[in-house]
């Protein structure tokens, strides 16, 4: 086997193959970045609506809770097939990359919404009350007071989730998206040793994940240092109702 592997190295490490790996890596990163990026924005909107103290929004709040609870429990592989066949059934012939991005976004939104909600809840109710009596309004309270304090709670798990999702996107290969795992399968199918093909996958996944994990760790440390300040009393389970 070692002789066979060594013999393949020269054929394997070519510019043409490198470009194929690069394209696959780009697709993997793009799926995670687009899905988690859009998911992060949508998750913040969902949490804003979910914690908005208006009885008129109750039906919407119920829908949001259902969405979060359901989509956090559906495996990524099941969901990507669901998105693929639903869009096909609706006559939307989206590119496979778009199908994968939608799937990542749907899942990421549900997961990140829970992380953001936990961040909101970590901020003491007296911060909400102070802002309310000074006429901040809900959006300004969140932007100026709550989110800056909640970052310490939101960023570390959100970053871990992002790194996890880079690996999770390997399942997009099941519907034919040309990403890292699919590239590994391709090279294996054209005769490259599985050790070399999937070993390269492993190396690239690690090369993507490890620096991101370190960046996340650094951000976490920096935030912990900057916001070592904590509220004087324990936080409540949910943001309080502070007037209309």
């Amino acid at each position: 086997m070692p002789e066979g592997l060594l013999g393949q190295l020269e054929v394997f490490f070519t510019w043409q193959n490198a470009l194929l790996w690069l394209r696959a890596t780009g697709t993997t990163v793009a799926m995670a970045v687009v899905g988690c990026g859009v998911g992060f924005v949508l998750a913040n909107l969902l949490v804003l609506v979910r914690t908005w103290p208006s009885r008129w929004l109750l039906p919407l709040r119920v829908l949001i809770v259902l969405y979060v609870e359901v989509f956090r429990r559906i495996p990524f592989l099941v969901l990507i097939f669901l998105v693929l066949f639903t869009t096909r059934a609706l006559g939307l012939h989206m590119p496979l990359f778009a199908v994968a991005c939608v799937t990542v976004t749907v899942t990421a939104t549900a997961f990140i919404a829970e992380i953001v909600r936990a961040g909101y809840e970590s901020v003491h109710r007296n911060q909400w009350e102070s802002a309310a009596v000074m006429n901040f309004g809900r959006l300004r309270t969140v932007a100026l007071v709550v989110l800056p304090q909640a970052w310490t709670v939101i960023v570390p798990p959100a970053f871990s989730y992002f790194v996890m999702f880079i690996k999770e996107t390997s399942l997009a290969s099941q519907v034919g998206v040309y990403e890292l795992m699919q590239a590994g399968k391709y090279f294996n199918n054209v005769g490259v040793s599985p050790f070399l093909a999937f070993g390269t996958c492993l190396a690239i996944y690690f090369a993507l994940s490890y620096p991101l994990t370190r960046v996340g760790w650094r951000i976490e440390r920096r935030l912990a240092h900057r916001f070592r300040r904590t509220s004087p009393a324990e936080p409540l389970a949910a943001p309080p109702v502070v007037g209309p």
Binding site: Q127, S130, L144, Q149, P232
Partner: peptide
Amino acid sequence: ALTAARARLAIVFQQFNLFQN
């Protein structure tokens, strides 16, 4: 009306309630 009323009032809380950030 509540916003207008709050603009005329100020309250100092028992637990200070300063913005921690």
